[in-house]
Amino acid sequence: MTLLEVKNIEKYYSQRQFIFRRKHEIPIIQKVSFSLREGECLGIVGQSGSGKSTLGRIILGVERPTNGEVLFQGVNLYEATSKDKKMVRRDLQAVFQNSYDSFNPKQTIFEILEEPLLNFEHYSKIERQHKVMELLDCVELANTIAQKYPAQLSGGQQQRINIARALALNPKLIVLDEAISSLDMILQKHILQLLQTLQKERKLAYIFISHDLQATHFMSDRILVMQHGQLMEEIQKGQTCQHPVSQELYNAILPSHPRGRNKIRY
């Protein structure tokens, strides 16, 4: 079943070159359409400035596109009634690159994870406590962390709290915008594997946005390649890329062993 449908999205930003000049319209995203099935992982790759993150924000419903529509489970995100919107908020979650910025620094981890439950569920206090512990278990963190503040945690722990919060309401789709880029290698792999297990257990769909083709390839069933706000190519899992833009990204993948270098010195 189709979970998300993006139809002919366009986004322009207007900018003035000089105070007294007329405003220019700068295209950020041009005529982008795609759809996503339930439980599928779609990767979006591109260089910085290619419009990946803007597309991510449009899908999340926080940035209104200039033209086009986004249908999530048949509901148009930008013309929905407030009741529909509340439904969408529940099923559509996000994890961003900078983990610390998305927390309230004065809330404890327990309060952070409790908040979505307070907003959407009618749980008793004990049920909420159980649920929070369950979420921490889910992302393989110790229960004792619940009483700490975000600043006391490492980057990897913070990112896992972000994922746990996104999972709290059993969403159908999580948008991961450069979610692992700021972490070191051991953690990256760990979190990717964690996301994959969660995907299988809960039939989640992901939109995985990154500039790293390797990690995206590891996660996704299908990859969209973007440049200058346009979709250049769609790569199915196991297929090789044809388009020069994707080739460039492919060539930028670093070798996993020094023997794989392009040229060896001396």
């Binding site: 260089q47 910085s48 500039h211 790293d212 083709l213 460039e248 930028a252 670093l254």
Partner: peptide
């Protein structure tokens, strides 16, 4: 702080 294509160029 760079994306993969720029990373390759700098290296």
């Amino acid at each position: 702080a760079l994306d993969t294509v720029n990373q390759k160029q700098v290296l």
